[in-house]
Design a protein around this nucleic acid. Structure first.
Lengths: 187, 187
DNA sequence: ATAACGATAATGAACGTTCATTCATTTTGG
DNA sequence: CCAAAATGAATGAACGTTCATTATCGTTAT
């Protein structure tokens, strides 16, 4: 399935670099190094191509987010792992976040895929927070209130690096991570 | 300039509701209650229409963000004001955020307008953080590290309400706001 | 080993549709 | 009555999709 990947990759790159306008099937085909008609051997039409790209990337994101994950780890170790994985992933492949956000904002996709994204791929994340609450370590707030204050800062900060608003600095990055870890705890 | 506004409004609504596909000039015109050709009396072409919509909304956002702002207020009062204004604005007009994000992600716009957004409209925000640092109240980190941990949580949390991940709850909202205020301070 | 064959994959020109834009004509309002 | 505004049918370019044709490659027959 080499060509399928090439098509998905080309679409990803073009979306990230050019946005929604100017990614014609012809251009995708050229970028992937194939003929326009060939795309239709692998994808029904443009809409399903985009939709499958979204699924593809979501799966990638879930994988990198939980790289090195183990139930043996302490809550704090788990948190540092999650935060770092997320932060580094955004920096390593900025296109991934750009495209996922872009697609996520498309109303059609948003409704279909939101559930998938939330429930399937990121279940361990929800579970992590639930454990912290159950153990009395985290504030007993709605999980997404906790996520907003903690995990989401990794994404927000990484985005700022991409957009050149924040200059990478290992010490400050760790300070943000640690601050976000502190703030969700009861004591 | 009634019609100009009608056009901008129609474009905003359609973008928010349908995303990038299927917002033809004809549809925008119909939604605005005018003829297709009329749009070209107010905007050079589709691209500048979109671009001016972005400017228009950014200006609106800046206005609501600083509603009630006064140099008399204490840092903490200023923060609570900023956070609330931002949070409420997203809830009141979700389309605004949806569209601004969508447009911001378009690479062409992103480069042109990023500077405008950052430097002009949100100068007082930067200034607020700089004051906190200078007064020794906030951590002496890069401003955008502080923003990530504090101001940005208002946007992130508001988005979660729109996407039905977080159920509105005044007490928890205030807890998040206060936690984000605490975390950026030295003591 | 080579040739012949068939099936699967790939190609890209052609087609029909959509859509941004134009402009001759009509409407509006002072 | 006239200038400015508005109209919407017409235009042409761009684009998604199709499909007749060609290339590829594994299998079988010689």
């Amino acid at each position: 399935m080499d060509k399928r990947d090439a098509i998905l990759n080309a679409t990803k790159t073009l979306l990230a670099e050019r946005g929604f306008y100017g990614i014609s099937m012809k251009l995708i085909a050229d970028t992937a190094g194939i003929a326009a008609g060939t795309i239709y051997r692998y994808f029904e039409n443009k809409e399903t191509l985009i939709s499958e790209l979204y699924r593809h990337i979501t799966r990638e994101v879930a994988q990198t987010t939980f790289k090195g994950w183990s139930d043996q780890l302490s809550l704090e170790e788990k948190y540092k792992l999650l935060w770092r994985n997320t932060f580094d992933a955004v920096r390593e492949d900025p296109q991934r976040l750009a495209v996922i956000e872009m697609l996520f904002l498309q109303p059609r996709l948003a409704r279909e895929e939101a559930a998938f994204c939330d429930n399937e791929a990121f279940y361990p994340l929800m579970d992590f927070y639930q454990q912290g609450i159950d153990q009395g370590v985290f504030h007993d707030w709605q999980i997404h209130a906790l996520i907003t204050l903690s995990f989401d800062t990794a994404i927000t900060l990484a985005k700022k690096i991409i957009r050149k608003r924040f200059t990478p600095d290992e010490m400050q990055i760790n300070q943000v991570r640690d601050a976000s870890w502190l703030i969700i705890q009861k004591s």
